[in-house]
Amino acid sequence: MTENVNISLKLFIEYLQIEKNCSQYTVEHYHHDVTDFFDFMKEEAILSLKDVQYSDVRIYLTKLYEKQLSRKTVARRISCLRSFYKFLLREKLVDENPMALVSIPKAEKRLPDFFYEQELNVFFESCETDTALGKRNKALLELLYGTGIRVSECCKIRLTDLDFYLSTVLVHGKGHKQRYVPFGSFAHDELESYIQTARRDLLKGKEDHGFLFVNFRGGPLTDRGVREVLNKMFEKSALHGKIHPHKLRHTFATHMLSNGADLRTVQELLGHAFLSSTQVYTHVTNEHLRRTYMSTHPRA
């Protein structure tokens, strides 16, 4: 393969970071998916991105399905390569987009995974707060569940974004959109405790960068760092199953709707551009009601 292929990827990554302001986690996904396609090009002896034809893309998709990847993963790969080729067209590095005619497979209709209240209580109770890292982790958990914000949004929060008088946080969301999200008394108390004591200890005398959450080296906590923190906390809790940061966001939305919140309010709190993105949680709450009915009603 020619050197231009790698240069194209480098330019695309810079475009995602600078122009699109994508999170590091998203950039890593794009990098992985494009690199995977480059590996396919090597196998097929395709030397240039300009040489890729629609027929080549069909062969690539066949190989993905042979690996038994989920429809969601295949759809992500196609979407990523489509964006990549759109960028290449814009920069006049290719003459046509071979991905344009490829249809994205419909994702399986899976209900969002969430914690039941009893499970979440066990998770919170397992948090130790004797150390600086423990206090940070408890504050992180309370904020993620208390606001339903995305991990990428959480990592961008600065001290100046918090208003303890109103118990709100200014969230910097997707597409440079901002919104104010309230947080409850539990998050309020844990955040104040963390900022007044643990955060200073974690900075270890270094210059304060202003970000709310700090890693053990004193730098800003990253998306990947949050995932590692949650995984370790979950392992200690002795709960079964898996955890991912979005599970707390799903749990926030599900509990809000289950306890009577209206759909529009939850949409605004989550920062969804479209109501259809929020409506998936109504299916979750309906399914929860059905299961409760079937397991408790004498004549179910």
Rank of each mutant, 00 (worst) to 15 (best):
L120W: 09
L120M: 15
N121A: 11
V122R: 15
V122A: 05
F123H: 01
F123L: 15
F124R: 00
F124I: 01
F124C: 02
E125P: 00
C127M: 14
C127Y: 09
C127D: 04
E128V: 12
T129G: 04
T129P: 00
T129S: 15
D130S: 12
A132M: 10
A132N: 06
A132S: 15
A132C: 12
A132F: 12
L133D: 12
L133I: 14
G134L: 14
G134P: 05
G134Y: 09
K135L: 15
K135Q: 15
K135A: 10
R136D: 03
N137H: 13
K138R: 15
A139S: 11
A139W: 02
A139N: 04
A139P: 11
A139L: 05
L140C: 03
L140T: 07
L140I: 07
L141M: 11
L141V: 05
E142A: 03
L143I: 12
L144Q: 03
L144A: 02
Y145T: 01
G146Y: 02
G146E: 02
G146V: 01
T147Q: 09
G148W: 13
I149W: 10
I149Y: 13
I149P: 10
R150A: 05
R150V: 01
R150D: 08
V151T: 13
V151D: 02
S152H: 09
S152Q: 07
S152W: 04
S152P: 10
E153H: 05
E153N: 09
C154T: 09
C154W: 02
C155A: 11
C155E: 01
C155Y: 00
C155D: 01
I157Y: 01
I157N: 04
I157M: 11
I157Q: 05
R158E: 10
R158S: 11
T160E: 14
T160M: 07
D161Q: 07
D161C: 08
D161T: 03
D161I: 03
D161G: 10
L162F: 02
L162V: 04
L162Q: 01
D163R: 05
F164G: 06
F164D: 01
Y165R: 14
Y165A: 13
L166V: 09
T168M: 14
T168S: 09
T168F: 08
V169I: 12
L170H: 12
L170Q: 09
L170D: 07
L170P: 02
V171T: 06
H172G: 07
H172S: 13
H172F: 14
G173A: 00
G175Y: 14
H176S: 14
K177W: 04
Q178K: 09
R179L: 06
Y180M: 13
V181A: 15
V181M: 08
P182G: 10
P182F: 06
P182A: 08
P182S: 10
F183M: 07
